[in-house]
Each structure stands twice: as structure tokens, then as C-alpha cells.
Design a protein around this nucleic acid. Structure first.
Lengths: 260, 260
DNA sequence: GTTAACAGTTAACACTGTTCACTGAAGCTC
DNA sequence: GAGCTTCAGTGAACAGTGTTAACTGTTAAC
């Protein structure tokens, strides 16, 4: 792989030619190969789907023998676990950057950017998207809290939407359905979550949840091709849906472009 | 496996003890083992998830050697393909039976039963549900139309909802959003699908699609546990959502039970 | 300068899907 | 009923997988 990274080479009273070039501290070298491993794993993921990113395949990709990878990951599962965490963080960073680079003070427009950002990321990286959001393991080990790095990264990702919606609420409280329409049972459950939603009332949390649920389902169906049989290009449908759920949050959404 | 099925044993002038018992025509025996294979496959699916249903594991389950299964399926993929098709058909049958057994003339109530039926099936059979609806292969072989039995069974399944919604429309046409709200682009696409939706106008198709999209996303999220972190029990939320999208279709939904 | 830690290799194990040559019995035809 | 064909099923093998153990050197530390 020959990654001669002489940037951090310390200035030594040179002894021979070889050392003067590639002097890298051990843990720096370790971090480098660790990154290479994950890069190779991702390369395999995008080219051949999640099944293609195997331990041996990754090792082959960087000219190593399979057991060598066990110096970096305790198992194959741990490797893709780390890959998942990385992808979540990348997605989260991309979405947060989307909010800051384009200086839009209007929070509604920000949510619009966020939703479209997630959709675009999914469409541009279907293999990665499938790894993150496809079949989120219906394993029934509810006792040990999912404290895997992947799960934590997923929570950080979810927080992006959650916080923006809470901001919108505190900025311009939107009307929400009356309690008797949701039912006591649901109201009780949502009230319990109020502290995690920055003190929003249950009805408002319900609408936030609806936004997320619809957005999520919509994007999953489009990326996974389950919308294909009726809509070859779901862009316009997505736009309409986004407008619909945006208006439910009291955001004034612009009418369709019709740029045909 | 010793499945001595003497039901169909023809009455013969018996020759010896053995023959008088298990006389089964060859293709009848073949059909029997084929069913046993799929039964074993399903058993493995529910107990260990989709990864557990391997060729060798299935063979082991019924005391056969792995190559024997190749007399019944050309490959491992074909086996789970057949399993998928069977599960789709089972789900479809269960939903259709749900509509006929309970004699409900009201079409809106039928849709309610259907939606709840799908949800319950998913919650009761999470492994099967994951196999059918989780990560629907983002493979990009768009040229060869998916004519696999699994895909065809999926279409039959989808038709159940599609036809009922069309029935509802022709029974009591519901108000739909005006064209300028959806945009020319989307209207054009939906108009194209009108013939597949029994002549419904694009706006009505849009609402039908919205119903399906929301229902699908909702159930997937709940079954796959992605709703767990905010709602331990999503039943009340599902009920509220169902009421919401039911009203969008002009159906008068009953208020929440509040049976606490 | 000796010792310990560590990256990496080789060999092997148990497992997977798949193929090929083969056996034995069931079914069909003359 | 004899002879031939069909076909379910076996045994052995191949290429592939994740994983472990014992073993090399090289690198860092006391």
C-alpha cells in the first residue's frame, strides 16, 4: 500500500536513507492502516453491497492476510459496526454543514434543506443508506442497552432533526391536534417524552414524530426502489409530501416550481 | 423424517407389509418433501433470522445431505426466493380472509382492518416481515424486469390495498388536493398511472399513494424497532396515524378508545 | 541492551454454497 | 415380467467464508 506520509517525520540527524523518509510513530501508522481498512471496506460496500464487504475481501484489498485485521477489529461484525458508525457520523456532518454553509435564517427552510439533504444522500449512496437504515436488526436483546458506537452515532444523527424541530417550535409554535383526537394513552406516552423534546407539549411532539416518520418512510421507499413500480421518478412526489408535512408544522412552503 | 402419509394410499391387493403402507406416487412424494423443505426453511427463519436459513442448515433439518436440495432448487437464492413468494402469498391470503370473514360492509372499516392486519402480521412475524420488506435490494438491474415469483407475489400483495382504495374511491369519492398544489410534474406522472388505478383522477391517486407510503413507513419503523427509542409501545401512535390518514380519505374514523 | 509489545504471517479448523460422479430404487415401455 | 430410463439421494471434493493458534520479525520502552 506504500503510503509514504512524510508530513510528520521528525527531523533527525539522519542515519540512512530509508529512515530519513518514512519515519512514522507506531500509533500513527496504526491509525493510518485503520483508516485504510475502513476506506477499503467502504469501497467494497459501494461496489458490491453490504455482502461484499467481507473480512478476507478487505484484507485482500490492502494486500494483507485476513488474520492481520484482527489486530484492529475483534471480529468481522465489529468492523462493519465501525463502518456504520463512521457512515452515520459522515451523514450527520453533511447535514449539519448543509445547515451552516447556506446562511438561511428561516428555520422552516432549514428543515426543508435537511430533509432534502437526507434524501439526496440516500439516493447518492444507496449502499451506505441500506447499511444504515435497512432492516435495523429486529434482535430482541432489549436488556443490554445498545451501547455500540453505531447506535450512539445513530442517536447523534437523530438529534439533528429533533433539535431543529424543537427550535422551530420555540421559534413559532405550530398548532397541534387537540388531546382528545390523539387519545389519553398516546398523550400520556408523549408527555413522558416531553423532557427529551425541550419541553414541547405532547401534541407538538406528535407532529414532530409524524414529520420524522413520514420523511423516513418516504426516503426509504424511494431509495430501496419500492416506489418504482408506480413512480419512476419520485422527486415530485417527495416535494409534494414535504410541502404537506411542512405545512402541518406551520411552515409556509413555496408552491411547486413547475420548471418544465 | 418418516412422514408416513397413508391417506392417499391406493387400495392394492397387498404384496407385503411395507408396500401396503407407504405407497405414494413419485411426484406426490416430491411435492411433500418440497413442502417440508420450505417448512424447515421457515422454521429456521423464525428462530434465527434470515441469515440462519442456509442451504446446509435446511438439509440438516430434514436429515438430508446438502446436494439433495439441488433436486428441488437450483440454488440457495432460489430457495429463499420461493420462501419469500410463499410468505407474500400467506400474508395476502391472511389479509383477504380478514376482509371476508368479518362481514363488514363499510369499506372504510375494511381498510382499517387491512392496515391493522398488516401491522399485526409484521409484529407477530418480525423475521418473515424483515425478509419481505427489509432492504428491498437496491440492485440496479433495471433492464431485466423482475419476473421472479417473489416479485409477482409482491405485486399481488400490493393489489389488495390498491383495489380496496379504488373501491373506496368509486363508492364515496373523497376530496383531494387541487392540482396546483401538487404541481404539473407530479400530476402528469400520476395521470399516467390512472389506468392502473381504475380511472381515478391524479389527485385521488396521490392520496392513495400517501396512505400506502405512510402505512408502510409506520409499520416498518415499528417492526424494525426504530420507533422504540421514543415510543416503547407504538400502538396508540399507530392508531392516531391511521385515523389521520383515514380522514384524509374521507372516512369517518371513530375517536380513540381510551380504555384505560 | 535487554525485554516486552506489537504488526503481520503461516497453518489450520469449522463452516458455507456448489458441482460431479455415482448408487439404488421407482416408473414406463415392449 | 425384462429392460431401460428417470430421478431422489449420497460421498467426495472445490472454492469460499470467519476465526484461532503458534510463530516471526520489527519497534518502542525501561
Amino acid at each position: 500500500m506504500l503510503t509514504v506520509n512524510s508530513v510528520h517525520s521528525k527531523v533527525l540527524p539522519y542515519r540512512d536513507v530509508k529512515e530519513s523518509f518514512e519515519v512514522e510513530s507506531r500509533d500513527r501508522r496504526r491509525a493510518a492502516t485503520l483508516a485504510e481498512i475502513k476506506a477499503a471496506a467502504r469501497r467494497l460496500l459501494v461496489s458490491g453491497g453490504s455482502t461484499a464487504v467481507g473480512l478476507r475481501a478487505v484484507a485482500r484489498e490492502l494486500g494483507l492476510t485476513p488474520p492481520a485485521l484482527y489486530r484492529y477489529f475483534p471480529s468481522h461484525d465489529a468492523l462493519i459496526g465501525a463502518l456504520i458508525a463512521d457512515l452515520y457520523d459522515e451523514l450527520t456532518a453533511a447535514l449539519m454543514q448543509l445547515q451552516t454553509t447556506e446562511e438561511v435564517p428561516d428555520l422552516g427552510e432549514r428543515l426543508y434543506l435537511l430533509a432534502n439533504g437526507l434524501r439526496n444522500w440516500g439516493l447518492e449512496h444507496p449502499a451506505e443508506f441500506a447499511l444504515l437504515f435497512g432492516t435495523a436488526v429486529p434482535i430482541a436483546d432489549a436488556d443490554d442497552h445498545d451501547e455500540t458506537p453505531g447506535h450512539q452515532a445513530a442517536m447523534r444523527f437523530g438529534a439533528v432533526f429533533k433539535e431543529l424541530v424543537a427550535q422551530i417550535w420555540h421559534w413559532k409554535p405550530f398548532p397541534y391536534p387537540p388531546d382528545e383526537l390523539l387519545g389519553k394513552e398516546l398523550i400520556a406516552q408523549l408527555t413522558e417524552e416531553s423532557e427529551h423534546f425541550q419541553g414541547m407539549p405532547p401534541g407538538a411532539i406528535y407532529l414532530s414524530l409524524t414529520y420524522w416518520t413520514r420523511l423516513y418512510g418516504l426516503i426509504c421507499m424511494e431509495v430501496f426502489g419500492q416506489l418504482h413500480w408506480v413512480l419512476p421518478d419520485a422527486a415530485a412526489y417527495f416535494e409534494a409530501q414535504l410541502r404537506e408535512i411542512g405545512e402541518a408544522l406551520g411552515l409556509d412552503c413555496p408552491p411547486p416550481d413547475d420548471k418544465t
